[in-house]
């Protein structure tokens, strides 16, 4: 079973009211160092079998057509979650 992760963020020029509210709450809890917060969405799409280039292509198409609205959001990542994790571990010299 493979899993594709899709990250969607509000466009930079669109005010993100939810992120703004979170940013307002952080200092009240002592987290004064964060000057701005933007809140997006993460989708995990599962497939039977491995994540092939075709699967990634289909996920990218779904991300553009359904998972995001291009008027207000950008798709910032479409990736094979396991491959990503493996790459991260390798880069940290832990694999």
């Amino acid at each position: 079973m493979g899993r594709v992760v899709v990250d969607v963020m509000p466009k930079p020029e669109i005010l993100d009211p939810q992120g703004k509210a979170v940013a307002g709450a952080l200092p009240r809890l002592g987290f004064g160092q964060f000057t701005s917060v933007r809140q997006g969405k993460r989708f995990e799409l599962e497939v039977d079998g491995p994540v092939t280039p075709e699967v990634l292509e289909a996920a990218a198409a779904a991300a553009e057509q359904v998972l995001s609205n291009p008027v207000i959001e950008d798709v910032v990542r479409v990736a094979d979650i396991e491959a990503d994790a493996a790459a991260t571990v390798a880069s940290q010299g832990l694999a």
Partner: peptide, 11 residues
């Protein structure tokens, strides 16, 4: 119709 709606500015 063009455009979209996001949360009210006041939340």
């Amino acid at each position: 119709l063009p455009g979209s709606m996001i949360k009210n500015e006041s939340l």
